[in-house]
Amino acid sequence: MASKKLTEKNIKDLLEKGITSVIKGFKSKSKKPFEAKFKIEDKKIGFALAIRGSVTCPSS
Rank of each mutant, 00 (worst) to 15 (best):
47 F>C: 06
19 I>C: 02
28 S>R: 07
19 I>D: 01
55 V>A: 12
14 L>P: 00
15 L>A: 13
18 G>Y: 04
53 G>Y: 06
58 P>F: 14
20 T>K: 05
37 K>Q: 13
6 L>D: 01
30 S>H: 04
45 I>D: 02
28 S>E: 05
57 C>S: 12
39 K>I: 14
51 I>V: 15
52 R>N: 13
45 I>G: 06
41 E>Q: 08
56 T>C: 12
14 L>D: 00
23 I>V: 12
42 D>R: 11
28 S>Y: 08
18 G>R: 02
35 E>I: 01
55 V>H: 10
37 K>M: 11
60 S>V: 15
58 P>V: 13
59 S>V: 11
25 G>Q: 09
53 G>R: 11
22 V>R: 11
8 E>W: 03
46 G>Y: 00
59 S>T: 15
30 S>V: 07
32 K>S: 08
33 P>F: 03
44 K>Y: 06
11 I>V: 10
60 S>R: 15
17 K>G: 00
23 I>N: 05
47 F>P: 02
53 G>V: 11
49 L>R: 14
49 L>D: 07
34 F>T: 07
33 P>K: 10
38 F>H: 05
22 V>I: 15
32 K>P: 00
25 G>Y: 06
51 I>S: 01
35 E>F: 01
9 K>R: 10
31 K>L: 09
57 C>F: 14
57 C>Y: 13
7 T>I: 05
25 G>W: 05
28 S>K: 01
38 F>P: 00
41 E>T: 11
46 G>H: 02
47 F>I: 09
32 K>D: 09
11 I>T: 07
36 A>N: 04
34 F>Y: 07
40 I>M: 03
31 K>Q: 09
48 A>G: 12
57 C>L: 12
37 K>N: 03
49 L>C: 06
26 F>G: 04
6 L>Q: 02
11 I>A: 06
53 G>H: 09
15 L>H: 09
60 S>Y: 15
19 I>G: 00
41 E>L: 12
7 T>S: 14
54 S>V: 11
44 K>P: 02
53 G>S: 04
34 F>S: 03
41 E>Y: 07
40 I>K: 09
50 A>S: 10
35 E>P: 02
24 K>C: 04
18 G>N: 09
50 A>R: 11
43 K>F: 07
8 E>V: 12
9 K>Q: 14
22 V>Y: 10
